[in-house]
Design a protein around this nucleic acid. Structure first.
Lengths: 219, 219
DNA sequence: ACAAAAGTGTTTCATATACACCCATGC
DNA sequence: GCATGGGTGTATATGAAACACTTTTGT
């Protein structure tokens, strides 16, 4: 900020919130965590999980706090997608919001806490009526997801620590909505730095068993 | 925003500012518009152009207003690059800032107003000491610029309405810092929708004269 | 023995790169 | 007539897409 002369205190101040687009996969659908609002504003609609920024935390920290309160998880992958600042974006009052998307493994989330929040996983292809400007936030998050799912190694945040290549491929197909050729896919992912073959074999998903891989963040 | 139960007014409020990374080209350098601060905070350092968001405008509108006040220009290409929300990012007070980059043609700017603001064009490769978190803002803007200069048709916002292909190529080379092959470059840009050959010939830059092109936003 | 998912190479096509000469004009 | 920047095509290399069969094991 650069405005000269005048003391800061003469300028208006705003509520600032964070909204989190929390993604997880479930078999073959990409889901986002939404809450059914039984309170104003936007009562009756669904919305993203959000919260106000506090004085003693950065905006990024606020996003991580909101995520932790809802999911119980601390080490979640989070990325900012931008600020949303239309005057009337919140019918309750002027609120400027910074949106983040988070990627996590659905199994790690405490279902009980979700119930308390009236939160539920919803398939991104069949979204219910959403309040605020949340549709725009979600579509921006989805567009980043589809573009960067493999190039930025986003995918691995949605999978368990050990996963099969078929799981990885199904995930990418789910997110992008495109079917992929198995052999081409395996050639392509072979070049991802940090993707490691392990000695473990998964026997759950097939009779023959599939090799398990994991992702370690490259130096 | 979604937090239930409590009235908004019990939550803290923040100064919100916009900071603009204003790019323009000058022969063969990419420049950003900075102001030399002779006032606190960060007096003595350089900074981006910024301003506080007002109650009666959206955040995007605030960015366009700040640009208009400084440059006199109304129809400037602007894109948000994100919110910056570290607690101590402004030594004067807690301020949450939303950064934008803007692309314009240096000739269209009123130099007199720049003088009044103590503003000057600075080559992005030789940036002076900058206040706040402005180095991070600029490097983020630069990274978007380098990646999207042609794919998102950013380049045309930096050129006059009519330009030669050599001007366009020089610009892309300047922004990306890489030299390009003339024939390959022309094959590539031939596929950009909206890039139109005109009947006009520029006689300034060469004896033979070079065909002028222009860019019209595709439907 | 058969169903079910895992695993594995080659050919073809499209795109990207490398590369050098003639053209038109002003001086 | 020569110096200056404008304009053009082809061959090669690299990466992307199409494509089908064998393997292992549980039932």
């Amino acid at each position: 900020m650069t405005t000269p002369l005048t003391a800061y205190s003469s300028f208006p101040r705003f509520h600032v919130s964070v909204d989190c687009i929390i993604f997880a996969v479930d078999n073959d659908s990409l889901n986002v965590l939404l809450i059914k609002r039984d309170f104003e504003p936007e009562k009756g609609k669904w919305s993203l999980i959000g919260g106000f920024v506090n004085d003693n935390e950065s905006v990024d920290e606020a996003a991580r706090r909101v995520l932790q309160e809802l999911t119980g998880l601390n080490d979640v992958f989070v990325r900012q997608i931008g600020a949303f600042g239309e005057i009337d974006r919140d019918p309750g009052a002027r609120v400027i919001s910074v949106a983040y998307f988070a990627l996590l493994n659905r199994n790690e989330v405490d279902e009980k806490v979700l119930k308390e929040y009236n939160a539920d996983w919803v398939n991104v292809n069949t979204l219910p009526p959403l309040g605020f400007d949340h549709p725009g936030m979600i579509s921006k998050a989805l567009s980043v997801m589809r573009r960067k799912i493999l190039t930025d190694a986003l995918a691995f945040n949605l999978l368990p620590e050990y996963f099969t290549l078929t799981q990885l491929q199904t995930l990418v197909e789910t997110v992008t909505g495109k079917e992929l050729d198995k052999r081409n896919f395996r050639k392509r992912i072979a070049e991802i730095p940090g993707l490691e073959q392990t000695d473990l074999i998964d026997k759950e998903s097939s009779k023959r068993g599939a090799r398990l891989y994991r992702f370690v963040h490259p130096a």
